[in-house]
Write a protein that binds this DNA or RNA. Structure first.
Lengths: 161, 161
DNA sequence: TTGCTTGCAAAGGATTTGCAACATG
DNA sequence: CATGTTGCAAATCCTTTGCAAGCAA
């Protein structure tokens, strides 16, 4: 399983005349073990716990390589940090993000995927990828929010204009 | 038209005990005149052309206020800069982004909007907003790309895992 | 060996903030 | 007038880079 991914990474490195190093092995290992969306800093802390000498820059560099190799997917939830998730056992998916607790849930809706394709076709675009993030309140936070009184919703002027 | 938006902004400021200033007027004016997705720097340059004394920081501060007031929408295409578009005459829309020339086209698909709502419902989420960006090649770039030979597609390992 | 890599610190780029002078209500 | 506001520069934050020393092939 992991060895499969490692082989792919080694192949990628070899093709580019790059080398497999202890650091790259370790960082990839730790990255693959974690599910979810990891920031470079979070990954760095995990790595440092195992190998205190590894530098932040190396983690950034490896993440970039993994992205290039197609092994990691970069996402940006607008927090000011990029996040990465490995593709092992992770097919494409969209996100349902709770604006209160910040937790994200991965979802896929085939019907939407097809309509996206159609939409692109309609405008003559060839679609290569997409991102869809739905923001709202998760069931748990919804309940809490109701108790705390109605949320002071962000002003939406669209109706007024 | 613009005056309507200005009134809203003034109302927003008043409610918060903030003041309407020359700079805020000017920045809002210029912001409203421009269609499309403006970065703070771009807006700053436009503003500076009219009022050289205005500082970058003020532009950033006003954009943040406009966002809070619900008059500006913040988007992030992953370029390392945030972009803002005013909501005047701009209902909600998604983006079709060309990965070659970078141009974006605004689209809306009612069927997709409805399915997004359903998708959220299915998981018990109350949806407040979403972002959907479709990446691909626009018709023009598609033609150019064909002449230049097949694109060396990014490795997609998902099938192999 | 010959490069590619690494860790460190410095550099970068975007955005924010502290502050004294300055407007606004 | 009491406060909020501004422009500037310095400070932050995340990320990238230059470089000398250290490894992999």
């Amino acid at each position: 399983m992991n060895s499969q991914v490692k082989e792919i990474f080694e192949g990628f490195l070899a093709e580019k005349g790059l080398k497999m190093t202890r650091q790259r092995q370790l960082i990839l290992d730790i990255f693959l073990k974690k599910e979810g969306h990891l920031s470079p800093e979070e990954l760095y802390l995990l790595v440092r716990a195992k190998a205190p000498a590894v530098g932040r820059a190396t983690v950034y560099r490896v993440l970039k390589l993994l992205k290039e190799a197609g092994l990691a997917h970069e996402v940006d939830f607008g927090e000011g940090v990029l996040r990465y998730e490995h593709k092992y056992g992770h097919a494409h998916h969209d996100h349902l993000i709770c604006m209160r607790c910040g937790r994200t849930r991965e979802v896929v809706d085939e019907a939407i995927e097809q309509l996206q394709q159609k939409l692109a076709d309609r405008y003559g675009y060839s679609l290569t990828s997409h991102r869809m993030d739905l923001y709202g309140l998760c069931p748990a936070c919804r309940r809490k929010a109701e108790k705390a009184g109605p949320p002071q919703a962000g002003v939406d002027i669209s109706a007024r204009l």
